[in-house]
Design a protein around this nucleic acid. Structure first.
Lengths: 368, 368
DNA sequence: CTGAAAGCGCTAACAC
DNA sequence: GTGTTAGCGCTTTCAG
């Protein structure tokens, strides 16, 4: 593209977009003075500044960020890497990140992994190549080593991973064990004993939730009744796992690893004509917007997603400011009770949900 | 040559990350040869190439994209600007964009408008500043002028806007009028006459759907019965609009402007104890993943979102290739019938939905 | 085949 | 106060 045509006609349509040099020529000053004036440096005379500004305006000049970033060594861009745009938990954390980043003058750009581990790695690489000033990773799918490696190139904070897996990487998480515990205690208080867990697939956060579930069941003397069924990552697998869990374990209550899983349970219950919460109580995790959308409204363990996003940005800024030690923030989850959980019924309803389903359920359950 | 410290120690931890010059020194060749070798140019000797590659490896060298982009004048990045991460329609188009972009060697970065017009404009500016090679806009919120202006700086394609509002901007859309028509015809065939429309808020796509609805109602001789209620943009407004429409117009069927609006209708119907589809038929638009998640499964007008995303990328590439005329692609929508639509009932159920609701049902309180 | 030199557009020390 | 001079890290002619 070495078309050197100095076509100064009308609106600078295509060709070469105007540079700082063009502005300087137009205003009759030097290149660097333009640079200063444009950024409002106060050691530029009023007259000169005026001329420069109008010249820039007339030429339709826009500064080239790439060039600036190259010389300054920073882009003022924060990258967010996320596994799955379809998971509201992820996108709600993003809102917090964006809020803080905006306030600090950073631009937020998202890279999306499409639930594909390889793609996720490539996207991370892309962000780093772009020389973003920091990366927020909302995904447990990346290998700890890959993160540590990334952290050598730019500040990285991982949201959702509970503990220190990757040296050099800060983390922001909620206390998954405590959250699971609160959920189980809530169900136990309602009189449930056959409390099952529709678990994640072994990544750190879901593992911790599973641990919390198990530990609390033991604590309650219900250790023998604990049932854990892992769930898949796509909607179809979720549906199957939910169906199988309800079918085989016949729980009176289920703690789901997240709201998406809880949704699958509600759907299966509906399909089997098991009324919720009369015949089955369901607790979700994350308290995403979903929880207030589904019917019945979902009892769910809230993670402070906005706060987590904001905190992630703060940690990034601290790193940029020179901090070298790792930090791991753990926030307290909070159980939000809605309509999907209710008292355990002792009648045949709970004991054999399918029987009840056939048998014309008149809401005769214990309606405290 | 101002090489002051040839520190070839272990892992290059922080400090200055290695540049092409460092690699050249390490390999004992010149800077430009390294550049060639690294990109696999075939006019580099086998021996030299080998030395260079290992040197780069040893130093942990990664090329600086910023510098490359600056000199080449392109970034190999495609920007996607979207209004609302929470709307699955948007994110499903993104999947198509990413698929094609990947195949062509482009990286896709997303910028998010947070349902805020100003923010949307700023984000567009950020993408352009970054010198992305093209922008896909999935949002009708931007002013046509802003888009035309943007198109002067980089190829821009707008997804979802039905016609040519912004000169210089290509568009990819579905035929909204045809889609609305198919939906209304479907309902009419089921015997519905009191078919209402829960409409959008006047942006082009929703306006076209409204047009299609009205025209088809007239065509069917039902013009006098047409009822249109606009809906808001956030969940709360949606709920209210849905409630008011059902309450005031008492339709036996509703065409919603999109799946989110349809969801609000289903929720309100449930709250009022109107069974769907027996007491009310609902048709959504977009056929997002939501349609297969809600209960009952939603009849919805499908837009080929993946194809639209792919097409958007193709149009971008064509522009980069030098095309100057605008192109406007219009794809055919397709009605997908599921469980939320059924025959019109002539009984009292449909005639007076609130009677059924008011019937002071059993005391089970916790319904929203 | 290889290497030196000239920038891409901008910023930031440093003289004038 | 204002302008000059070096680069940021990379690609890309153009001589050797």
């Amino acid at each position: 593209m070495s078309t050197r045509r100095t076509d100064g006609s009308g609106t600078g349509r295509r060709d070469r977009r105007p540079t700082i040099v063009d502005v300087a020529a137009e205003a009759g000053v030097s290149k660097s003075l333009v640079s200063l004036a444009l950024r409002g440096d106060d050691r530029v005379g009023e007259a000169a500044r005026e001329r420069i500004l109008t010249a820039a305006e007339r030429l339709g000049y826009r500064s080239n960020t790439l060039a600036r970033s190259l010389v300054q060594g920073r882009t003022m861009i924060l990258g967010v890497l996320l596994t799955d745009l379809a998971n509201p938990y992820h996108t709600e954390v993003v809102a917090g990140v964006e809020e803080s980043a905006d306030a600090e003058g950073f631009t937020v750009l998202l890279a999306h992994g499409q639930r594909d581990r390889h793609r996720l790695g490539r996207q991370l690489e892309s962000l780093l190549q772009l020389n973003v000033d920091g990366v927020v990773v909302i995904s447990s799918w990346l290998e700890p080593d890959a993160l540590t490696e990334a952290a050598r190139r730019a500040p990285v904070v991982m949201v959702g991973r509970p503990t220190a897996f990757s040296p050099g990487v800060d983390t922001v998480a909620n206390d998954d064990e405590a959250g699971a515990r609160a959920a189980v205690l809530h169900l136990a208080e309602l009189g449930h004993e056959r409390i099952a867990h529709l678990s994640g697939t072994g990544r750190p956060a879901s593992r911790a939730r599973g641990e919390g579930y198990r530990a609390t069941m033991r604590e309650l003397g219900l250790g023998g009744r604990a049932v854990v069924r892992p769930i898949g990552d796509d909607p179809h697998q979720r549906a199957r796992a939910a169906a199988e869990l309800l079918e085989s374990a016949r729980p009176s209550a289920v703690l789901a690893v997240n709201d998406l899983a809880a949704l699958a349970l509600l759907d299966q219950a509906h399909a089997s004509r098991v009324p919720v919460p009369e015949g089955l109580s369901v607790v979700g995790y994350d308290n995403t917007a979903l929880a207030e959308t589904v019917r019945p409204r979902l009892t769910s363990v809230d993670q402070p997603r906005l706060v987590m996003g904001r905190l992630a940005v703060r940690l990034l800024l601290e790193r940029m400011g020179g901090r070298t030690g790792d930090r791991h923030e753990v926030l307290a989850p909070r159980l939000v009770v809605r309509a999907s959980t209710g008292p355990a019924s002792t009648g045949p309803l709970a004991a054999a949900p399918d029987t009840a389903a056939q048998g014309r359920a008149d809401g005769s359950g214990p309606q405290a």
